[in-house]
Nucleic acid binder design. Structure first.
Lengths: 196, 196
DNA sequence: CTTGCCTATGCAACAAGTTGCATAGCAGGA
DNA sequence: TCCTGCTATGCAACTTGTTGCATAGGCAAG
């Protein structure tokens, strides 16, 4: 179950409560793994029982107390083992593609609005990623490794930062690909007739 | 549940048995939706009970008899309704990205072999898609709509074919994007040091 | 002072997906 | 004849993921 490992990674990057994790899963972690708060609370409880996480009650003023989770030594070991296992191929789920092929048995043009809506969502996501990249990785148009303050001046590069950036670049590449493909799909939908 | 709709689409394109569907889900349908035979048999049974599918016992020689499913009128209506509903955003699951960010707390370079393996799988998948495109859509290097035998000569374009091709082009674009991104990831892994 | 919103945690029921196993006919090769 | 492999269908148990709801304190606006 990769959700457990996503939680381990996130808590290693920074300890936090279930609520905070849920919000991270709407932001940076959510770029490559999604989970709702119910799922997170359930898994946190199990991982704590298994000894992979430590908990600490943190009283807060002005808001309810929280349980701050952090990764135990055993949790770190477990993550290390998982990292060395091969990944089995991801299962694909592209609902829009199912609809596209289904549209042949209905009115293909009726899908145009929906495809445009998806394209807008991907454009928004791309803008969001690019803004995050400018903010966190100080890149302009063309990335130049030497201008990166963390790698310049003979400093050892921060592996975590470099890897986070590489993952973000993957998200950016994905959104760009989707936007271009949806342009292609829209052209196709407009070219073909109004179906059966 | 989109598996039901993927099955409706597949059976509309061509009726078949659960076994045949399972094999299609390893091939063309599998480009955008995956399912195992257990899942398929279970859902077929439910859809038949709901009246969305018709069954026909087909005796065969040299092999066991099969049940051939086809879409009922009600099933076609149900698909049409689904097509007009908006899709909720896909949930993302990129296990490799989780590992990449986790690698910062282990040895990043240990992931190189795994990333290379994934890149090979994506190259194989791309080759497979391109071969399918050449076979089924008779394209060479640059697609030219006028040279398409089905659209040439004033013939009305086959919407199903056009849409299948558009979906396939999406798969091709995805694999090309992944191959390029994994090159980027490999360069990053090789650049950064051997971790903690 | 009531209403809505944010933080914070959680249960229960259900739907979907995975894993392991079982059955059975037939074909072809060792 | 036995073993392997392909076609063909299915059950049972389990894990994951989703949806709806419940609770509770504090803050700010109206």
């Amino acid at each position: 179950m990769a959700l457990e490992h996503a939680i381990l990674v996130s808590l290693l990057e920074k300890p936090g409560s279930g609520y905070e994790l849920a919000r991270r899963f709407e932001r940076s972690i959510g770029y490559f793994w999604t989970a709702t708060h119910q799922q997170i609370y359930r898994v946190l409880k199990r991982m704590e029982a298994d000894g992979r996480l430590d908990v600490r009650e943190v009283p807060q003023q002005g808001r309810p107390d929280k349980k701050e989770y952090s990764v135990s030594a055993y949790g770190l070991t477990a993550l290390g083992e998982w990292l060395h296992e091969p990944i089995q191929p991801e299962s694909v789920r592209h609902e829009l593609a199912v609809k596209l092929r289904g549209a042949a048995f209905d009115d293909p043009r009726a899908l145009i609005g929906e495809v445009e809506r998806h394209q807008r969502m991907h454009r928004d996501q791309l803008d969001h990623y690019l803004a995050g990249e400018r903010r966190d990785f100080a890149v302009s148009d063309s990335r130049t490794a030497v201008s990166d303050p963390l790698t310049a001046g003979g400093e050892p590069p921060d592996a975590g930062r470099e890897l986070q950036h590489a993952v973000l670049r993957g998200g950016i590449a994905y959104e760009r690909m989707m936007i271009a493909w949806l342009d292609d799909v829209l052209a196709t939908l407009r070219r073909i007739g109004p179906g059966r």
